[in-house]
Amino acid sequence: MAAKQNNEKIEATDAGVGGPKPWVFVLMVLTLYWAINYLDGHGGGFNAKVYAPHKDATVVASLKVQKTPEEQALEGGARIYRGICAACHQPNGLGNSNAGFPPLVNSEWVLNASPDRIIAIVSNGLQGPVEVAGQIYNKVAMPAQGVALSDEDIANVLSYIRRNIDWGDAHNLPLVTPEQVKAVRDNDAIATRSTAWTADELKQQFPDSQ
């Protein structure tokens, strides 16, 4: 024990002051350059939503083909249709003739060349009786949707019902644009109207489209 103590030299200062040579720091700078590149490639741009530890994930985002305006419009329309319209007109668009809900599929009101009339119906509602696809619906009382929906929403949902290939070949009309909707809704007759349309009034207001 005593031997241990005597042998041990606790030096007050450390003589060797040698430190890393300058090239070590050059190497560290190079490593820093590598690190920045590595983080660029694997760090996902410090984005909270990128999880893949490979460069691929960021590339993937740029690779995904942008959705066309048409697809966006139809998808938006489908969402609105499911949320609002499908309750009466059913998801398949066939309506429910027993309960007095007319179909949209192959309906002459929907598939009119000009969308003005159907824009007016969605905006202000419709009061029966009305003839759809050869059948007369007396109890129709469609509420006005114009307050809750923007021009774009109405355009999208109308595009969806007029251009839904699944509903039949006739449903292949061009997209309804928000401008078209705005034009109809800005019309005094519609903007000031507080009651629902009747079929006759519609035919009168938008005669050219029959």
Partner: peptide
Amino acid sequence: ANAADASKARNFLA
């Protein structure tokens, strides 16, 4: 494919 190849294919075809 890896991202680089897929990117090439997409660009060529598009």
